[in-house]
């Protein structure tokens, strides 16, 4: 009986404490950043919520650290997700300040509804579409046309609804071999899946972005698609129209176009436009 009572006491204690915590969180959550740093509060800290495509996680984290050093009055909150999900969040009035999309489509949709400040929109980055093979591949592929040959048994590409898949189709259509490729293609859910199929050797080759190919040493870049074979791969940026921190947001976008940021982007394999 004693055991039981102690147990009950423990449970109720945990409950009360965590409920209290939860209540505090709800109360404080929207001012969390500011009361973490009392000193910054007096200097009037601006919080910027930057919604960015998940593929930019590492570069933006790095650039965020750099920016923090010179802009003590700005607190950057990066939130990473798929461009489509981020678009929905902005449409539903999430408190976002900056949107960096991995495709023009999502940005166009927001522009149509006047949800982004049109004059701040800019194509920040570009990416290359490349053909990758497993590191130990003995097929000796050197061009996109080689993929059509019979020695290639399985090609990993993005599905129809995946951006990289659409670019892939354009490239192979340009070389007029899409029908042959389609017959031996395995369709990935996203570019990462395509890459892991090639990494593991399950596919003889695959088509991914250059930035993805550079994240692993298990694949070799066999060829890069020429610019005129597909629509350009673009990463547009813009300030969200509803943002209350327009000036601070613009300033951060300017920083992303600075030579300092350019070096970081290029190191990761992006083309700076």
């Amino acid at each position: 009986m004693k055991m039981k009572k102690i147990g009950l006491l423990c449970i109720s204690l945990i409950l009360v404490v965590s409920l209290g915590l939860a209540a505090c969180e709800i109360k404080n959550s929207d001012e969390m950043g500011s009361d973490k740093d009392e000193k910054a509060k007096t200097e009037k800290t601006v919080e910027l919520n930057v919604l960015a495509a998940a593929s930019m996680t590492d570069v933006l984290n790095e650039l965020g650290e750099t920016y923090k050093a010179t802009h003590k009055d700005v607190k950057l909150n990066f939130s990473y997700g798929s461009s489509g999900a981020l678009q929905t969040q902005i449409e539903e009035g999430a408190p976002a300040d900056i949107f960096i999309s991995a495709g023009a489509k999502q940005m166009d949709a927001l522009a149509e509804k006047n949800l982004i400040a049109a004059d701040t929109r800019k194509d920040l980055l570009g990416n290359d579409v490349v053909l990758v093979t497993p590191k130990d591949s003995k097929l000796g592929l050197t061009s996109f046309e080689d993929v059509a040959s019979d020695k290639v048994k399985r090609v990993a590409v993005g599905g129809e609804n995946v951006p990289v898949g659409q670019y892939t189709q354009q490239v192979f259509e340009y070389y007029k071999v899409w029908d042959k490729i389609k017959a031996k293609a395995s369709l990935g859910e996203d570019v990462r899946q395509v890459l892991s199929w090639v990494e593991s050797g399950d596919a003889d080759c695959g088509i991914v972005y250059k930035t993805d190919a550079l994240t692993t040493d298990k694949v070799t870049v066999a060829a890069a698609a020429a610019a005129d074979t597909h629509k350009p791969v673009l990463y547009p940026e813009a300030v969200v129209a509803a943002s209350k921190n327009q000036d601070a947001a613009k300033e951060f976008l300017e920083f992303l176009s600075s030579p300092e940021a350019k070096a970081v982007f290029e190191k990761a394999g992006f083309t700076v436009l």
């Binding site: 939860a22 969180e25 709800i26 109360k27 959550s29 929207d30 969390m32 919520n49 909150n77 939130s79 969040q89 539903e92 009035g93 999430a94 408190p95 976002a96």
Partner: peptide
């Protein structure tokens, strides 16, 4: 009431 749940820990909870 100047409370936002989206993008906060409260939202995650």
């Amino acid at each position: 009431m100047d409370v936002s749940v989206v993008f906060t820990l409260a939202g995650a909870i």
